[in-house]
């Protein structure tokens, strides 16, 4: 699955602003996101497979918050969608939501890795 959207998966200008122009902090934040994201994805998959709406809501919320700070707009939107599905108890649609989230993460990951000097 690919995301067909003209917006960039990562907004460097907004990210710089978010981190106060502090390059070192920006790198640290990007590294934290790259470390934490697989953990969140694992927890999201487990919650979907286990039919755990509360768990899905909490982990999707956590990933959404972290992604917002690295200006990963597609990850934010896909995680928010999963959070809404969990809130509304529509777990039968969550598998497609996870696919969309996977695609969004795959798009933003290389952009964040490129920040490394």
């Amino acid at each position: 699955m690919t995301i067909d959207d003209p917006r960039p998966p990562f907004d460097l200008e907004a990210f710089d602003r978010q981190t106060g122009g502090d390059r070192e902090l920006g790198l640290e934040v990007a590294r934290m996101f790259l470390e934490d994201c697989p953990v969140h994805m694992e927890a999201i998959r487990a919650a979907v497979q286990g039919g755990d709406a509360a768990g899905l809501r909490a982990t999707a919320h956590a990933l959404r918050g972290a992604a917002a700070f690295v200006t990963a707009v597609f990850v934010v939107e896909a995680a928010a969608h999963l959070e809404a599905l969990a809130r509304e108890g529509r777990l039968n649609e969550a598998a497609a939501g996870v696919e969309r989230l996977d695609a969004a993460v795959a798009q933003v990951t290389p952009a964040l890795r490129q920040l490394e000097p």
Partner: peptide, 13 residues
Amino acid sequence: DDDRIAAAILTQA
């Protein structure tokens, strides 16, 4: 905040 990214950005700011 339990999100270490939010905590790091807030602390620095």
